[in-house]
Every structure is written in C-alpha cells, then in structure tokens.
Write a protein that binds this DNA or RNA. Structure first.
Length: 858
DNA sequence: CTAGCCTTGAAG
DNA sequence: CTTCAAGGCTAG
C-alpha cells in the first residue's frame, strides 16, 4: 500500500510549475473547511469555527496523517509556500484594523496550515473564518473585499484518498470530532483535509484526542448529551448548543457547502483526482447521469468532471499530484474523500435562505437556477458548430455572442472558454483557480459585484459567478495537455442570460454582465418554466422507460391504469400530475447515484490494495486474485473481507469489492467507499428541497438517524428486478444462501423481504425518492432542535407522495399507506445491519466515518 | 495574482 | 491548412 514515501515521491514528481495543477478546485477545499473546530463559538453558530475544526480536530476519517502531510509538502504548492506567515500579513495591512486583524488571524492560521500542512478549506469554511474571528462579514464593507483571502491549495486535494486510507487506516482517528462536520466530512473529502499535523498553527489547534492514537476506533469522545460522537462534538464546539457548523450566514457557509455538495457539480477536479470525490463540475457524473442539465446529451461522454483528454494512464492524472500509485487519477484526492466537496453546487439551489446568492450582484440564486435551465438548453445545441453556435434558441450567432460582453465581468468576450463565451481574463482566472485549486473566500460572505473594474477584488465571488454562468470544471484538463478540441459535454453553452428568449443576445449578455439585472427574475421564471418542461419530458422518459440500475418493474406508466388515452397525452398527464415537490426531489436524485465512472474510480483503489499498493493492477475487478504476495494470512483476511463484502450495509451502499483481495487494506478501502457513499448522501441531502431548509444541527441529526435506512432502502429498490437477490454494486448480488454462509442471513432475509414488498407494490422511482426523503425526515428523535419544522417538512413529503400515488395509481389507493408501512421494516432491518456491521468490525477494522456513524448510534 | 498574448494540437 | 479552445508564459 502506498506509504508516505511513495506519496511524497509522487508529489515531488508533480510538476510544480503548474503549481497547482493538482490542486483541487476551491470548492473541494471548502468542504473540508466545513469541518469545524470547536473553538470559537461564533455568533449564530457560525461556521467559522468549522474551519478550524477541520484543521485541528478533524482527523481524517481515514485517520491518516500521512496523506495530509504529504499533501502539504507539495500540495500546498504556492500557497503553502507563500504562506509564509509574515509575508501574507504584510499584504493585508490596508484593511481596517479590526477587520484586518481578523483577516490576518485567519491568514495566520492558514499559513500555519500551509506550513504544517494544507488545511482543507472550503469556500464555506473560509467564509466562515472571518466571521469566526469576529469579523462581521456583512458589516465588513467593501474594504474587506480586497482582503479576501485565498486559500490555495488544499491539502486534501493532493492527498490521495486511497493512499490515506491505506496508509493511515491503522491509525484511524476517530472522527469523533463532530458530526457537525459530518456534513462537511461526508461531503467533503475531509479526510485529507484535516491534516492532523497541520494544526499546529498558532491557532490553537485542537488535535483530536485520537490523533496520536492509532486506534481511534476505540476512542470514545466525551459524550455530551448525545451519545453520538458526532453530535457530541458538535455540541462541544458550540457552547450554548449552537450549531457550530452552519453558522454561516452565507449560503456558502461551510456547512452549507458541506452538505451541499457541490452538488451536481462535484468538483471536477476532484472527480478526476479522487475516485471518491464528487466532481466539481456540474456535468459531473452525477449530473450527467441524471441528465438533469441537458436534454440532448443526457450522458456526457465524459463523466469525469475534469476533462481527461488523453486517457491518462492510470496514475498519471494530475501528474504529480498524486495519483497514488497506480490508482490513477482518482486516488489522490479521493479519499478522503470526498473531499472535495465541491463547492459549487451545480444545480443546487441555494439552500440558504440567506439569499445568498453568491454570484454577482445579488441575483445569484436566480442566476444559478437559470444556469441550470440554460445548461439544458445549451446542451441541446450542437456542440461546436463550426463557427456558428449551435442553434441557440434565440438564433444567436457565434459572432453575436462574441460581440457581447462577458457574462461574468462584462469585458469583451474572446471566445468560448470552459463551456461559455467569456473574456480572456475570466478564462484565465477560471483556469488558474481550478488548476491551482485555490480556495477563495469572500470576506463579505456575500455576492460581490463582478465587473471589469471589480473583478479583481473578490475572486471568490468571481469564481462563483464563473460557475454560475456555466464554466465547466471538467473543461480544465487534468493532464494539462494543450491543443486539440475539448470533448467535454456541451461544448457550446450559451451564457444564461444570452439564452433568455426574453432578451436579445446583447441585452441578455449585458444583463448578465450587470449583476444588478432587474430582469433576472423574469428571465429566470421563464427559463425555469422551460427547464421544468424539459424536466418533465425527461421524467416521462424515465417513467416510461426507466430501467436504470434499479430498473423499475412498475413504472408509473404501467401503473397509471386510469390513464388510457393516447400515449402522449398520458405522458403529459402523468408528468403534470407529479407534485412539484416530488419533481424537485427527483431532480436531485442524481446526486445520490454513482456513475459508472465513479464506481470505476472507487474500485480502482482496490487494485492498489490488492497489490500492496503497486500500481500494477489495472482493474479492481481482476485485481486480487492475481496478487502474488498472498500469504497464509490471506485466507483469514479473505474470509473477513468476504464478510465485509457481503455485509448488507456495505452492499446497500453500493459498495463491494470483488472480494478477491486478500489485502487487509481492502477493508479500509471499503470503509472509504462507504464514507464516500455517505458523502454522496450528504450532498444529496443538502440539495433536497425540504431538507436544506432545516437547521444544520437537525440535518446532521436526521442524517445520523437515517443514513442506514437510506442506504438499505436504495439497495432494496435496486434489487427489485432480481427476486431472491440483493444487488450490490456493479452487478454483484447476494442471495440468501450466500448470506447464510456469512452469518448475515437475518439481515439479507429482511432486505429480501422488503424488496419483495417493493416489487409487489410496484414502487416506482418517484415513490422511491419520496420515501427516502420521508425516511430522512423522521422527526421522532428527541435530539432535534426544531422537531416541529422537521415534522412539517416530512408532512409535505408525505403529501407529495400521497398525491403522486393517488394520481398515478388510482386503482390502488392503499398504495400510499402500504409504502409507509415498509418503513418500520426498513428500520428494523437497519438495526440488524448495524449490529452486524459493528460486530464484524470489532476486530479492529477501520470504518472511518462509517464507524463513527455506527458509534454514534444510540 | 492578473490578463494579454503565445503555443499546441485535435478536428474539420 | 484553418479553427479554436486549452495550456503556458510573463510583464505589470
């Protein structure tokens, strides 16, 4: 397995000139920032703390220190280096004292982090920091803008998830730190991000108690009222019971990002780098899967957010960055997981009610929404029409577009860059930011105006706007190859504003350029409508021809017996009868699913594990069996692994390895995979229409209480079309007889039973997603701060499901009730699964986050 | 760090 | 050969 030295070597090998080619997008980093520290109770539970936490306490889920450290060395690239504390401080002298002080403190910490190790940052996290320091972002005033701090390379990014896992697993640190971060952690790659060592910074770093203790698993965080370590942590951090995480007023708060996930947009970089990490790009695999963004090109040829042009040899991705040995691209970031939480939320609607629109001018939220629709529309256009834009809805010619102002800053458009027509400066800015994985944090925490004159003032908001306007992370080539045509999906995407049929191209562009657009709302509405229509069409397709991994036996179309009119009419009716809420939930469902590319990446690491970290193995599937070094212990290991592999929880998470691996690290790998699964869940949660409006504290609480149910339920749903078998990932299945050999028959049996019910009820995808939300929103836990609110949200979901079932399955009015009756079964099954998993892991196996979650179980 | 200009190189 | 989008270089 990869060890420190190997990591370092890789890092060193990485081309430094690029400084950062390896760096992850800011977003990713952000995620990490989410983690928080306990120290400053900020007003509102502000997140500022979060940032600290990450550095200080967050032990990586994996517990590996090494990866982190390694990252520092190289990952920091410039930042860390430049990070010399003193220098940076000097730069900020101009700020007001108070603010400056705060900022400087922040920087100091950052430097420390850099110096000691990269500190995982997330946009959100960063934003929060200032707040933490007491700086009132809002009051800060424009001056602060100048002082924006950029957190550059993140450690996380560079670290290899897998590596970390493998190397550090033994030293797992209990994540006990908080669940607060859970969100962040889950979503973000926290793992690497939390450099244990880095914490030394002046900033009082709080090391996780377990840092030094390799056996973190055993570590029991002091429990407060909550038994859950995560919860406990959270509480600790907030004196007063405030939520530590979210505190950010800004939508981008660390917490926000944490859960958010950058949603659809996983960090492109991430994905490329890290097998587990969600990609930053909007088009990331998730998005592509769902095809939410585009009509025409449902699946982008390039799932990888980051464009890997010339099929990078394994491990060549981001040269130097770290691909851990052979794992190739993803390895480096991975692990962590998930780290990268991309900030960017692709689709995501800003959850935060704060209005936090980040991008320009205050209309960000709207804009982002527009983007979505825009993307869809744009995708429809044909890519690269030589010279002429693919038919833009408005019939805008390429020339016209080029003559329009840059949608980001209003400058002159120089061409089509990274998915949109933009000026040279924004192109360069986007490239630098992504390639160097810079984490910019808006000191003001809000959307700053981005214009030609102000674009240099707030890189954070500028970058946010780049994303909002459609720049694609995947367009940044991970291998940095030059020339040639880009192959990422939707080569030509018109700026949102330009697509608006309500405005002429120029007007639209101008409007876009001007952050203050008054017309945005109208545009947005209009676009939203269009987008919605497309979604409906797409949904219809899904419903009628749904067959995904979880092929639905009973699609609404089938069930809609009452609708016997012409097919098209029927489709229309069905589509129109889908409650908005359900539709919204469905729209983020892609965040839940893994793409083939992701699965491939996730499994890649196994190769390394199987071969002792060697890069020789090319595919996870074939790996283990050929490992030459298998020794006598292998048998035992294999048995253990087999158990792990067949564990219902892991299986339900879609995690499974081929099982051939004898390497003990496989377990760690599986744990990481599980972490990733959870990470995706968090992303999904954060984007849910109802969930995102719940306080972070409660979000965490709900997630802790339902993660297992969610995983098992999805697994069962996925197995609907395979009676007698529970589908694991990648087509692998477990039958009851197989389960018996592992002592898992009880759990598998229940899962099969549940699956039978789902099959009998002909549960369709809409019902499935609605039920997941209902399960997630179980408010029967005493730990909720706003139980009533959660209850209300759940009721909405229930109403949506009920309305849906009645509309689509009028012949079976009891369906709604029957569906709900499955929930208790699901919960019991989960309890069993958890117990089994816990037992299975008592022998020391590390389960990282998963274990943390388990330990947090009450 | 920014941004303008240059170099690449796949696609047409 | 021409396009043109992506990366690289470098003065400011």
């Amino acid at each position: 397995m990869p060890n420190m030295s190997s990591i370092k070597a890789e890092q060193q090998s990485a081309p430094m000139g690029g400084t950062g080619s390896y760096q992850l997008p800011v977003n990713m980093c952000t995620s990490s920032s989410a983690t928080t520290t306990t120290t400053t109770p900020s007003r509102h539970n502000v997140s500022v703390t979060n940032i600290k936490c990450e550095l200080e306490e967050l032990p990586t889920p994996n517990g590996n220190l090494v990866p982190v450290i390694a990252n520092y060395n190289h990952g920091s690239l410039r930042i860390p280096l430049s990070g010399q504390p003193h220098n940076q401080q000097d730069q900020e002298e101009s700020d007001s004292e108070a603010e400056l002080t705060n900022i400087e403190n922040l920087k100091v910490r950052r430097r420390a982090a850099d110096k000691n190790g990269p500190r995982p940052m997330s946009w959100e996290g960063e934003l929060s920091e200032p707040e933490e320091n007491g700086v009132s972002a809002g009051s800060g005033g424009a001056e602060l803008m100048e002082t924006e701090t950029v957190i550059k390379s993140e450690v996380c990014a560079t670290s290899t998830p897998i590596q970390a896992a493998s190397t550090t697993c033994p030293t797992m640190q209990p994540i006990k730190t908080e669940l607060d971060n859970i969100a962040g952690e889950l979503q973000h790659p926290r793992s690497n991000a939390y450099p244990v060592s880095s914490c030394n910074g002046p900033a009082k770093l709080k090391l996780a108690p377990t840092q030094s203790d390799p056996i973190n698993l055993k570590y029991e965080p002091p429990l407060g009222d909550n038994n859950s370590p995560l919860l406990t942590t959270r509480n600790k951090s907030n004196s007063g019971g405030h939520l530590p995480l979210p505190a950010n007023p800004s939508p981008d708060s660390a917490i926000h990002s944490v859960y958010t996930h950058s949603s659809p947009s996983q960090s492109p970089l991430t994905s490329r780098h890290a097998p587990y990490t969600p990609s930053l790009s909007r088009n990331n695999s998730d998005a592509s899967h769902s095809s939410c963004y585009s009509y025409s090109s449902e699946f982008s040829p390039t799932h990888s957010p980051i464009q890997a042009r010339h099929a990078p040899p394994a491990g060549s991705m981001y040269p130097g960055s770290g691909s851990a040995g052979g794992n190739g691209a993803g390895s480096s970031y991975g692990n962590g997981v998930h780290h990268h939480g991309m900030l960017y939320r692709p689709l995501k609607v800003e959850a935060s009610s704060t209005g936090g629109s980040v991008g320009g001018g205050g209309s960000c939220s709207q804009e982002s929404a527009q983007n979505l629709s825009m993307d869809s529309a744009s995708s429809a256009m044909d890519p690269l029409g030589s010279g002429s834009l693919p038919a833009s809805p408005a019939g805008i010619s390429r020339q016209q577009l080029i003559n329009s102002p840059c949608p980001i800053c209003g400058d002159k458009i120089s061409g089509f860059h990274y998915g949109i027509f933009s000026c040279e400066s924004c192109k360069g800015f986007f490239k630098r930011t992504v390639q160097n994985r810079k984490n910019y944090v808006c000191v003001r925490g809000g959307p700053c105006q981005v214009s030609i004159s102000t674009r240099k003032k707030c890189p954070a908001c500028r970058f946010e706007k780049c994303l909002q306007k459609g720049m694609k992370l995947e367009a940044i080539r991970e291998d940095r190859t030059r020339g040639g045509r880009s192959t990422y999906q939707c080569s030509y995407t018109l700026p949102n504003s330009m697509l608006s049929p309500l405005l002429s191209p120029d007007q639209a562009a101008a409007a876009a350029a001007a952050a203050s657009s008054v017309n945005h709302q109208h545009q947005h509405q209009h676009q939203h409508q269009q987008h919605h229509q497309h979604q409906q069409q797409r949904l219809q397709q899904q419903m009628n021809g749904y067959s995904g991994s979880t092929s639905l036996p009973a699609s609404p179309s089938l069930g809609g017996a009452s609708i016997k009119t012409e097919e098209n009419d029927a489709k229309t009716l069905r589509a129109s009868s889908i409650p908005t809420l359900l539709q919204e939930i469905m729209d983020v469902e892609h965040l839940w699913q893994y793409t083939d590319a992701e699965l491939a990446r996730i499994n890649q690491p196994l190769s390394a594990f199987a071969t002792g970290g060697s890069s020789s193995s090319s595919s996870s599937s074939s790996v283990a069996s050929t490992a030459p070094h298998q020794n006598h212990q292998q048998q035992q290991q294999q048995q253990h692994q087999q158990q792990q592999l067949t564990n219902p929880l892991l299986a339900s998470a879609g995690l499974s390895s081929n099982g051939e691996n004898a390497n003990p690290d496989l377990i760690a790998h599986l744990c990481n995979v599980a972490d990733h699964r959870l990470y995706k869940i968090v992303k999904w949660c954060k984007s849910l229409p109802l969930f995102k409006n719940i306080s972070i504290d409660d979000q965490i609480c709900l997630l802790i209480n339902s993660w297992c149910e969610l995983l098992l339920f999805s697994c069962c749903f996925r197995s609907i079309d395979t009676p007698g078998e529970i589908k694991m990932s990648q087509g692998r299945k477990i039958t009851l007889s197989q389960a018996k050999t592992n002592g898992l028959q009880t759990c598998i049996e229940r899962m099969l039973n549940l699956t039978d019910h789902l099959r009998r009820l002909r549960v369709d995808r809409y019902e499935y997603v609605a039920m997941k939300v209902i399960v997630l929103l179980q408010s029967d836990t005493t730990e909720l701060h706003e139980a009533v609110k959660v209850r209300e949200c759940q009721e909405k979901a229930l109403q949506g499901l009920q309305a849906y079932t009645l509309a689509h399955y009028p012949d079976t009015p009891s369906k709604f009730g029957e569906l709900l009756l499955r929930i208790p079964d699901l919960q019991r099954t989960c309890q069993l699964g958890k117990e089994m998993l816990t037992i299975k892991t008592r022998d020391g196996a590390d389960f990282n986050l998963l274990m943390e979650l388990l330990r947090g179980e009450h």
